[in-house]
């Protein structure tokens, strides 16, 4: 297990450094960026940037300093928000995005897997068709179409739910964003889970379990799920990436001051330090999730440990 973690870290850390190098490089070639001369910035920010990036030193040394600062968790000053560091901005948005993201991922995984399993067991029944029909909608209707329609219907037409704002994390304010964020993922996960469960149900070892006279419920919980959940474990990181990009839109639509919001504002205003800070945060989170899903896989599938 420890070997596996070390092996994965040996891939993840260089990947992260490549991403950071890419971001670092882009900031330098960017027109009107923090490292070009034709800018018109207030002198105090200019000075901060010069300090922050040691612009007088050779390029490779600058990159080294930048890296070590990131390793310490310092993402530098914001390029557009005076008096704020990128850390402060990200920290202010992080709790919101995290609440949103974690609720969405838990709901997608639980509901998606559960619906997929039941649809597979009750294959070709009305329940199966209903789940697959709804998941088709989830796949064909992108979140930026779904979210406004949901808020139009539940928020404005029925008046059940607030359509924007954070309101200190009030549960009612969370419902619409979390639902619109998770629905596409529930759709994908339930389809995946359905087909992998059907595949497992048809496998020889399930026939053995039936021949052993094991009750149906126990066959599903002990023999089927641990095999059929494996594709979902592998999908964990892509799902998170999907939720990250989805949350950028969702935070925009529902007016939530999360990281995604800062990312868009930063992108529109060309706040290079902010955008690269968010990018690095997202990439690190993803690397962590890939590691997590590898560990989970090793726990669930004894065949992995051998390698």
């Amino acid at each position: 297990m420890i070997q596996l973690i070390i092996k994965r870290l040996a891939i993840a850390i260089p990947t992260l450094i490549i991403i950071i190098a890419f971001v670092f490089g882009l900031m330098r070639v960017a027109p009107g960026g923090p490292f070009t001369n034709e800018r018109a910035l207030p002198p105090e920010i200019e000075q901060k940037i010069n300090e922050a990036y040691d612009l007088d030193k050779p390029l490779i040394q600058q990159f080294g300093i930048y890296l070590s600062k990131i390793a310490k968790g310092d993402l530098g000053p914001s390029y557009k928000y005076k008096d704020f560091t990128v850390n402060e901005l990200i920290l202010s948005g992080f709790p919101i995005s995290l609440t949103l993201g974690i609720s969405a991922i838990i709901i997608s995984l639980l509901l998606g897997s559960l619906l997929g399993i039941i649809a597979a067991i009750k294959r070709n029944t009305i329940f199966d068709y209903a789940v697959m029909g709804v998941s088709l909608i989830g796949i064909c209707v992108p979140s930026f179409v779904l979210a406004p329609i949901l808020s139009l219907f539940f928020g404005l037409y029925l008046g059940f739910l607030p359509i924007s704002g954070w309101n200190g994390g009030n549960i009612y304010n969370l419902i619409l964003p979390v639902v619109s964020l998770s629905l596409p993922q529930i759709a994908i996960i339930s389809r995946m889970m359905r087909s992998s469960t059907i595949e497992t149900l048809n496998s020889n070892f399930i026939r053995t379990a039936r021949a052993k006279g094991i009750p149906k419920r126990r066959i599903i919980t002990k023999h089927v799920i641990r095999s059929s959940i494996l594709p979902i474990i592998d999908y964990l990181a892509p799902a998170t990436a999907g939720l990250m990009t989805g949350s950028i839109i969702i935070e925009q639509i529902f007016g939530l001051p999360g990281i995604g919001r800062y990312f868009v504002v930063g992108a529109l205003q060309r706040d290079y330090t902010l955008v690269s800070g968010v990018m690095i945060l997202y990439a690190s989170l993803l690397m962590f999730l890939i590691l997590l899903s590898d560990i989970l896989r090793a726990i669930l599938d004894p065949r992995v440990k051998i390698k």
């Binding site: 020889n204 070892f205 053995t208 039936r210 021949a211 052993k212 006279g213 095999s227 599938d301 065949r303």
Partner: peptide, 22 residues
């Protein structure tokens, strides 16, 4: 299912895939 495994035992063709892998 109360008879299978208790009064009637089974042995299948393909031992490589007939046991639960996990």
């Amino acid at each position: 299912s109360e008879i299978r495994g208790k009064k009637i035992g089974f042995i299948f063709q393909d031992p490589m895939t007939s046991l639960t892998p996990h």
